[in-house]
Write a protein that binds this DNA or RNA. Structure first.
Lengths: 200, 200
DNA sequence: CTACGGGCATGACACATGTCATGGCCGGGG
DNA sequence: CCCCGGCCATGACATGTGTCATGCCCGTAG
């Protein structure tokens, strides 16, 4: 019997997956969690064989949860996400996750992936893997990413400069090179593109 | 037998809901669609009793689909969404949708809502409804919303002006009053806030 | 009718933002 | 060693953006 923990902040998909997994004779759903912190706590208590973790969750995201669990328990983690971008996949694998499944795949694949991972194997969605191999790593430097992150909610140059302890001119300069590298015209477009590609 | 069309761009939740609904003796899933345009076409062809429509879909969103179907067929629509904000609910009801269900609710409620709507009733999630009654309508004028929408991806003032056939100064003015009304400092923050509240 | 208020549009002005040229710092070859 | 190239930081300059005062149009209250 494979003991599974489910974590997803979206109640509908969480309960739907739970209901479907309960129909499988060899799988037992031992916990359903609505955020990352809860998932960490429950996983520590229940020691499930596999954790199915949504990437976008409040408090701790799926990758952060996988990181912590890999340090403290023997649980194997599968990251599930809406935004299956190469950068995200890299983050997930770096955290020690054993599986990576985009939500664009059918629910029927979930049980199969769980079995494979529970048996000690790994699973990475082939399509995203192909993308990740072909596509470039972020062309942005660390500092440029810092600036982008600090300004992702429309913060003003002055605010970004304060949070990073920089002169406003420096921030503008970093932004400018980012715009050039990404071939866009405004910071907002740069932020959207970088998020799209999983760089921030 | 209630004939149901399912439309959601996220394959996992679409197939999970389909699998669960097929377990219900009185419900038949006649179509699964991955975007709004496909949903419109399939609904016209198959005349389902109920359409379960995700709000966020490529090409046509759920509300736009519901609008078209209400003009052309007798199908009753249920809008399902991640972002269950009062503004979104208002849009949905204005489009003639018979049901509104946030994805934070469990999958087990879906069948119940479908039955209710198929029987000629309506269903609106009580929690969102309460929010919608207590909370304010958008303080922004139509034109201000147009400008915000046209600039939601970081378009430059000039581009917004062109798409709306306005002078750049006018666009700046609308943006300015929006910033004042929403008490924020940049367009990007205004866009984020307006999206958050379901105004655009 | 007339006065008023709200939405819409506009141009001039002040300020924030993007661009550019420059210089310091560090690490890896010739 | 010394030079080169990448990254980071900065200030001056040009351009884009936000603010303001103004005017038009229209519906409505006096």
């Amino acid at each position: 019997m494979i003991r599974v923990l489910l974590a997803d902040d979206e109640g509908m998909i969480r309960s739907a997956l739970a209901a479907l997994l309960r129909l499988e004779p060899d799988i037992e759903v031992v916990a359903e969690c609505a955020d990352g912190a809860e998932a960490v706590a429950e996983a520590a208590r229940l020691k499930p064989d596999v954790c199915l973790l949504d990437l976008e969750m409040p408090r701790l995201d799926g990758v952060e949860v996988a990181e912590r669990l890999n340090r403290t328990t023997a649980t194997r983690c599968v990251i599930v996400t809406r935004h299956a971008r190469p950068g995200v996949l890299r983050r997930a694998l770096a955290s020690g996750a054993a599986g990576f499944l985009p939500k664009s795949r059918g629910a029927d694949e979930v049980a199969a992936v769980i079995r494979r991972v529970a048996a000690g194997g790994r699973y990475v969605d082939p399509e995203v893997a192909a993308d990740a191999l072909s596509d470039e790593r972020s062309p942005l430097t660390d500092r440029e990413l810092d600036v982008l992150r600090a300004g992702r909610n429309g913060e003003t140059t002055r605010q970004i400069a304060r949070t990073l302890s920089l002169a406003p001119g420096t921030v503008r300069n970093h932004v400018s090179t980012v715009l050039g590298k990404l071939a866009v015209e405004t910071r907002q477009q740069a932020v959207l593109l970088a998020q799209e590609r999983g760089w921030i």
